[in-house]
Each structure stands twice: as C-alpha cells, then as structure tokens.
Amino acid sequence: MKLKLLVFAGLAELLGGSAIVVDVAADKLSPAQLKTYLIEQFPQAAPTLATSFIAVNQAYAEEHTLIGERDEVAIIPPVSGGEPQPGLATNPDMAEITLDPIAVEQVTAKVLHPNHGAAIAFIGTTRELTHGQRTTLLEYEAYTPMALKTMRQIIEEIGDLHPGTLCAITHRLGSVPVGEISVVIAVSSPHRDAAYDASRYAIERLKQIVPIWKKEIWEDGSEWKGHQLGPWDPTAANGGAQP
C-alpha cells in the first residue's frame, strides 16, 4: 500500500520534504513496523526516527494500532515543545494558534471570571542568550490540527485536576524575533494555589504532547530544538507533568 506521511521540523529536512509517500508491502502495519521500515529506507534520519512517535488521524498511535492506506499518518519528532494561514486564530476557543503577535490581555480576558480571585498569565518570549550563544530569531512550526487538539486536551485535564479553574492557551507560529512573545498561557481560579499549579502544569504538558517545534537561528547557524527534559513519551499518563 502507499502511505502519505506528514513530516515536520528537522525530520522534514532529513527526509527531503514535509510530505513523503512510501510504498510498503502490506495492507496494514503497526507503528513499530512503520518506524522500522522508515529507518531502513532513510538511515541518515535513523537517530531522529528512533525517538519519534507515529500519529494516526491526529492522535498518538498506541502499539496495537493498525495503520491503513486511508489513515492520516504523521511522524512526530520530539516536540519543543492543514497549512497555517493568516487569521488562523480559533477564537473564541480557549486553544488558539496564530501567525500574528500575541496580545497578552486578549488571552487573559478569556479566563477572567467574577467568582475567581486569582488570574495568572505565563508569557514565553524569545531569549537572546542561551548558554552564551546569541539567538537572533526563533522559527516555530506545528502540526496544526493535532496541536489544537492536544492544547484542548491540556485545558480539559486542568479542569479535571482543579475543578472550576479556567485555562486559555495561545501559541504563535512562524518567525518570532528576540523579545517577542511565542506563547501565552492564562489561568484563573477561585484561589491562587490552584492557579499557580495549573499554570506550571500547562506549560510542562504543552512541552510534552503538543506537536510544535522551534528552530533556533543564531548569528552563525541554526538548529531544530526538540524535547529536552529527558526521555520523551507523549503517550505516558500526563506526559510526566506534575499536577
């Protein structure tokens, strides 16, 4: 069967494009079988493929999943954390992806509630210096439909962990210069302890399961940055994030 595979970030550079077609001698195959096949076909990408996960129909595939020709299949390399178009924002949804600069007050306004006494906005910006290396620009890329789906999942998880707590997440794609905002996570709750806990949970969980990647561009080169918090397993319960 012929499978069209969506590929992202540095893995797309290694495989020669953001969408590739492979022809496998089977009617169905498991995620592990697909990864083995790809490693054999693309040995130059073997280290990245070995740590990647397979997504089927915009969900991380389990071991027993069988992949068929009609499935939407994506190869998800470690995260940094349809084609994006201007005005992609999903307002009034609490999960939003945009190509435009993010207004913190607009994201925060989504979670303000008369019965809540605490509201927090986490703001992620492009840092100029990292371990002595000067960054000039960050480039963000996403598997957009799945990114929105997993962002909504995080919002639901926070509601389960901290009943009554509200959360809104907005992430920017494309070029984000030094000092500009790449992500805003707004949280509100009746009490501050839950708001603090939910805010930390949201950013850690986002780094674990949301298929968004960043490319650090320096004065003398560039590199795609993936998950940097130890072994990456987005299928683990809560992705290792602490409530």
Rank of each mutant, 00 (worst) to 15 (best):
R127N: 13
L161Y: 02
P145L: 03
Q133G: 00
S189W: 11
A142T: 10
M151H: 11
P84V: 13
I154V: 13
R172D: 14
G174T: 08
G179C: 07
I185A: 01
T165M: 06
I169M: 14
P145V: 02
S188W: 06
P92T: 04
L166F: 12
L88K: 00
V79Q: 03
P114W: 06
P84Q: 10
R127M: 10
T130G: 13
I185D: 00
H131K: 15
M146R: 02
A95R: 09
P163V: 07
Q85D: 00
D100H: 08
A118I: 07
Q106N: 12
V176F: 05
L88I: 13
G179K: 03
A109L: 14
V104W: 04
V187R: 03
F122H: 09
P84N: 04
I123R: 06
N91R: 15
R172G: 10
S182N: 09
E141K: 09
P101N: 08
A89I: 06
I181V: 15
G87R: 01
P78T: 01
P114Y: 05
E83I: 14
I102R: 08
L148K: 03
S182E: 03
S80H: 10
N115E: 15
E157V: 03
L148N: 03
I75L: 15
I97T: 06
T165R: 12
D160P: 00
K149Q: 00
Y196I: 07
V187G: 04
S188E: 07
S175Y: 12
I123M: 02
A118D: 06
I120K: 04
I120F: 03
S80D: 03
H191K: 14
N115H: 13
E156M: 05
K110S: 08
T130C: 14
T108I: 02
V107T: 15
V111M: 12
V187T: 08
R134N: 07
L138S: 05
G87H: 11
E83K: 06
T135N: 02
L148A: 04
S189T: 05
M94F: 14
E96V: 10
R172A: 08
I181R: 12
I181K: 15
R172F: 11
E83C: 05
I102Y: 09
R192N: 10
T170N: 02
Y196L: 11
G159D: 11
K149M: 01
R192G: 05
Y143T: 11
E157R: 11
E139S: 02
L99V: 08
I181S: 14
I185G: 00
E156C: 11
Y140R: 09
E139P: 00
H131P: 01
T90M: 05
L88E: 13
